[in-house]
Computed example of a mutant assay.
Amino acid sequence: MTNRAIISTPEAPAAIGPYSQAVKVGGTVWISGQIPLVPDSMELVKGDIKAQATQVFQNLQAIANAAGGSLDNAVKINISLTDLADFAAVNEVMAEFFNEPYPARACVQVAALPKAVDIEVEAILAT
């Protein structure tokens, strides 16, 4: 693929496995799942689900910016939670990062996530 670009920024956590922060093909950007890692230290955010979700959405925002867009370009968000009881709190945080019209979204409960975190979010952007 000649129009495939790998997106990488120090403003978001480095990949902790064999994947890219994001891949852009044409005007579409696929952002890998982000967990609540602080980019500078690569340490997990301490605190409740709101603190964790805030870091996750900040990471997504940084990658979206590096791809030449913003979270306003999001067309689909996939949220994985280890406890769906956190659904309302994550909605509150998400509303701080997105403007209407909101992207399509899925939210599922999963048994476990990398580094035993409570939340992971991935995004697809149309820039």
Rank of each mutant, 00 (worst) to 15 (best):
A22M: 04
R4S: 15
P13N: 11
Q58T: 14
P10Y: 00
A51W: 03
I7A: 02
G17V: 03
F57K: 10
V121E: 01
A111Y: 01
Q34L: 06
I31A: 08
I7P: 02
T54D: 13
A22G: 05
I6N: 13
T54H: 07
L113T: 03
T54Y: 02
M42P: 12
A14G: 09
E120A: 15
P13K: 05
I7F: 03
A22I: 04
A123K: 00
P10D: 05
T54W: 00
L44K: 11
A62M: 04
A53D: 02
A53F: 01
A51H: 07
E11F: 11
A64N: 06
I77S: 09
I119S: 03
L113C: 11
V90R: 01
P39M: 01
T2Y: 13
P103G: 07
G47A: 08
K46L: 06
E120N: 15
K115I: 09
V29D: 03
K50D: 07
P39C: 00
S20V: 14
Q52G: 09
D118Q: 13
Q21L: 03
R4N: 14
A85G: 10
K46M: 10
I63E: 00
F57S: 11
I79F: 03
L60E: 04
I31V: 10
K24S: 11
I16K: 11
F57P: 10
A74R: 00
A126K: 15
T28F: 04
I6G: 09
T82V: 10
V29G: 05
S20D: 14
V93Y: 00
L125K: 09
P39D: 02
A14Q: 10
E120F: 07
Q34Y: 04
S80Q: 14
Q52E: 04
S80Y: 01
V117E: 05
